[in-house]
Structures are given as structure tokens and as C-alpha cells.
Design a protein around this nucleic acid. Structure first.
Lengths: 170, 170
DNA sequence: GTCCATGCAAAGCCTTTGCAGTGTG
DNA sequence: CACACTGCAAAGGCTTTGCATGGAC
């Protein structure tokens, strides 16, 4: 197995292609930083924030600035490859969009675990509400804050839950 | 009709009583600033943010500092009289809680109108999801972003909607 | 060669906090 | 009369921006 490998494998070809098409369509440039960031985003299985993405990139040896992280995330969101969400604290969270799937979130106020779920009935019901108000939906967001199963079992809840609820900002 | 009026009418007796009970229960004090802020909150019909509340208070002649506005809003949220929400931009929004009602929001990305709605079926469905995950819900939040009926009619939508969606942060 | 992109550092915005003085209970 | 509350100003956290340099096409 000593076949020559290409110097840089394309890790997420489909998303890469979509991003490049988006960039071309706007006369933007496909830089190394942008490619590296796309890879890092699609390598992540879960939610992340700008800072942890920045850190992950640096740890992989990509000397990329925080400013570029923000600028590129913005592009990815506009291009539909990334979603930006608030999960109840003061900073933005992001997640890679795989295919067309949409899911909502259960967020544990005790251990910060985020459980994703998808319920078609729920989406249908939202559509019917929009119809009722003649509102054209573009995006939605449902978050349920509470205590996850594990934390209920541990019984460690309730330290300063009242305060966390008040700080939800969501 | 020249009956003597009390020097300061209690504008929102029920909420005032609840707030005072809350304060007493924590050995906190019922100051003029806190009373004025409560009044201002319940005088507002819609959503507001900390800054506009601060402004409204000053315009009514209450020299209250921004710090106290934040501190008191926090108390009101903990006491359940106010809800704190993110409506897609970078700062927190608040709304007075009248009774036990809960509602969700349709948010127009073109004119920023917020339409409130309540759908019991939706709440029930959320409960069933929580049951499924053995998740104990404490608070939830559903926002649907899009274009309201009026803006669809005006056809003024779509200026930089993509960018607004990307900035949702929600 | 022309713009666009990057990094840096500074500024921005909203929010929180330390401190000294003031007022409530 | 103790302890909580206020205002002020400064700090804080996250994000954006201006500017000069470097890079893609």
C-alpha cells in the first residue's frame, strides 16, 4: 500500500463543492483558510461556538484569526451549510447542516447537554400556524430547557436553576 | 369630582403585591426604583429591551441607572413576572407576563413585527417529546422567522434577507 | 495586476461588577 | 442601625471593523 496519496484529501467533497459554487457565484475567493474552516466545521459532530472552532483550527496547525473565523462562519451560514443558534447563553452557537435535516433541541440546564430531536408533526403544526397568519416562514427554532434524564437521576439539579432560567435569554 | 386622590396610585396592584411578596421572601427591599420599574414594565404592551425601558423610565422622570434596570429585570424574571427572550438579534428582549399565559412568536425579518400566538396542541406535543426523552421541561421557546402578511403584500422583502437570516443568532 | 482576504488591534455593543455613598426595614 | 440598594464608571465577553499587507484569479 505505498500508492502516492494526494497531498490534501478532500474531506467533505459535497459540502466543499457547494461552498465553492457559492463563493464563485459571488466572486469571492476560495482560500486555504476557508477550506480549512469548512473541514473543521464538518468534522465536528455537535454544536460549537466561534471560539472553540478557532481553537480546534489552531490545534490542527491552521493559523487562522478569530476575525476570519467569524467572517467565514457568516459566509457558511449564508450559503446554508451552517446554522447559527442561540442555546440560552450569551454567545452564538453553530452547527453543520447535513442534508436538509432540521431538528430542534432539548437543553439541560444542569449539565448543558443538548439533545436533538426531529418530529415531523411539530413541523406540520408550525406550518399550519403560519398558514393561519398568512406568514411566510423562512426559519424556525424550538428550544426546550429543562433537566435531562441523567441529571434527574443524579438529583444534582436545582443549585441555582432559578438564576439560570432567568439568564436564558432565549 | 374634587375628591382627594392618593399621592401615588397603585397601577398594577396584583403584580405589585406579587413582587413585594417575592422581595420579602428573600429579605430584599422594596425601593422606589423597583416599584417604578415594575410599573413601567406592566405599562408596556409589547416586547421591550433593557435600553428602551431605561429610556422610558427617564422620560417619565425616574432617574434610574442602567445597572439598576438590569438588576431589577433579573429579579422580575426570577419572580416570574417577566420573561426574557431572544428575538434574533444580539440583545435580550423582555416581556411582561400577564397571568399564566404562554405564547410563541412569529417574527418578521423585514419589518421586525412580532406576532404572538398560542396553540395548545403545540404545547401538548412538546410535552410528549419530553416524555419520550424523560426530559423534565422548565421553559420553552419557539420562534418562527419569516415574512409577515403585510410585507408579503408590499413586496418589499428580500433586500438583504439572506444576511438577516444569517445573523439570526436564534 | 486587480480586488478580495487576512491578521491585527481597536472599537462596539450589551451586560455585569466593584465600590463608596444612601436608604429601607 | 445593619444590611441591602443605588449610581457611577470601569471591566467583561463576544463580535465587528479599519487598515495595511498578502494572496487568489
Amino acid at each position: 500500500m505505498t500508492r502516492t496519496q494526494p497531498p490534501r484529501r478532500q474531506l467533505h467533497p459535497e459540502e466543499q463543492a457547494r461552498f465553492e459554487a457559492f463563493l464563485r457565484s459571488r466572486d469571492l475567493k476560495c482560500t486555504d483558510e476557508r477550506k480549512a474552516l469548512l473541514d473543521a466545521v464538518f468534522a465536528s459532530k455537535h454544536h460549537f461556538d466561534a471560539d472553540s472552532l478557532h481553537l480546534a483550527l489552531r490545534q490542527k496547525g491552521n493559523e487562522i484569526s478569530r476575525a476570519t473565523v467569524y467572517r467565514t462562519l457568516d459566509l457558511l451560514v449564508q450559503c446554508g451549510l451552517v446554522r447559527k443558534q442561540s442555546l440560552g447563553d450569551q454567545h452564538a452557537h453553530y452547527e453543520a447542516v447535513h442534508g436538509d435535516e432540521h431538528h430542534d433541541h432539548l437543553i439541560c440546564l444542569n449539565c448543558d447537554t443538548v439533545i436533538e430531536f426531529f418530529k415531523p408533526d411539530l413541523e406540520a403544526m408550525q406550518d399550519s400556524i403560519c398558514l393561519e397568519f398568512k406568514f411566510k416562514p423562512l426559519h424556525h427554532n424550538l428550544q426546550i430547557f429543562g433537566i435531562c434524564r441523567a441529571c434527574q437521576a443524579k438529583g444534582t439539579e436545582g443549585l441555582d436553576l432559578a438564576h439560570r432560567v432567568s439568564q436564558l435569554h432565549a
